[in-house]
């Protein structure tokens, strides 16, 4: 049971980083990135490929972040002239492209089998000690990512992101280069998502194309929406809640004697129901954005 709890906490921290990344892009910047899993996947595969090539994880992880940042930059540049809705659809297509590359380029990505046998984090430790060390690292990186996202939100750049979210045309009319802002926030968000993906790979010692399905993007969106779009703490709370539910619901099958094949459907149904309930009862999310405090910056 202890190991299961540690596993849930580690996964919460990893997806917490991915959710903070999406929250920066979508919650603060208003960018409907439906391809978040692509950035996560680029980081994950980059770390897998580099560690398989013999690079130690402390070097592979930043390299994975850089690769995902580049991916974010490319997505931002790619759709710079597209209207928001079309750009959102384009990001979904990009995520599928990344998954299809991972699925088909066996020589690089291992194809459908993925990349396994990766030397994970803290190879000198075993069992609970290893899980605790991984949790400490993941929690530290989540804290660092969350503080950075929070700080960014309080800077001039963060304020411009909010203007872009509220009224992009007016932000432009005030002299802001919203294309540059969009590219910058996607690169930063990409680096964060790449960090999450890299950690995921190192923790599970495996990455495969099934981890890059569009459903994963919507799971991260669920975390952000549930927690409270625009609030860093909300993204972390949402990630913990969704990850715990996702991992914990299969235990219900023992309690209520459900067939195993219904477990997967049940957890998707439960998460969907909770999202619906939150949207109806608390549409700003569990930890809503504090607009006034975030906006106000006296001269």
């Amino acid at each position: 049971m202890l190991e299961f709890c540690l596993h849930v906490l580690i996964m919460s921290a990893i997806f917490g980083i991915a959710a903070v990344s999406l929250n920066l892009q979508a919650g603060t910047g208003g960018l409907l990135n439906f391809g978040q899993i692509a950035l996560f996947g680029i980081g994950a595969y980059a770390v897998a490929i580099l560690t398989r090539a013999g690079l130690p994880w402390p070097a592979a992880l930043p390299a994975g972040m850089a690769a995902a940042a580049l991916g974010g930059f490319a997505i931002g540049r790619l759709g710079r002239d597209l209207a928001a809705e079309y750009w959102a659809l384009a990001t979904l297509a990009v995520a599928e492209l990344v998954r299809l590359v991972a699925l088909n380029e066996d020589w690089l990505t291992g194809g459908p089998q993925g990349i396994g046998g990766i030397v994970g984090l803290f190879p000198g430790l075993d069992g609970v000690a290893r899980a605790l060390a991984t949790l400490a690292l993941a929690a530290l990186l989540l804290l660092g990512t969350a503080l950075m996202a929070r700080r960014l939100g309080q800077t001039q750049f963060g304020r411009v992101l909010r203007l872009m979210r509220e009224n992009p045309d007016l932000a432009t009319a005030l002299g802001h280069d919203i294309v540059a802002c969009k590219v910058k926030v996607l690169a930063i968000g990409g680096a964060m998502a790449g960090l999450a993906g890299g950690l995921y790979t190192l923790y599970l010692a495996f990455i495969g194309p099934d981890q890059l399905l569009p459903f994963e993007t919507f799971l991260i969106w669920t975390m952000v929406v549930l927690g409270g779009l625009g609030n860093v703490a909300g993204a972390v709370v949402g990630a913990m809640l969704v990850t715990t539910l996702y991992a914990g619901i299969p235990f219900l099958k023992d309690a209520v004697a459900l067939p195993s094949d219904l477990t997967g459907s049940l957890r998707v149904f439960a998460i969907g129901s909770i999202v619906l309930a939150v949207l109806m009862l608390k549409p700003q999310g569990l930890v809503p954005e504090r607009l006034r405090r975030l906006h106000a910056q006296r001269p």
Partner: peptide
């Protein structure tokens, strides 16, 4: 939509 409603006049 030519003002930012949640901000103060000064902001």
């Amino acid at each position: 939509d030519n003002i930012f409603g949640p901000l103060t006049i000064r902001e």
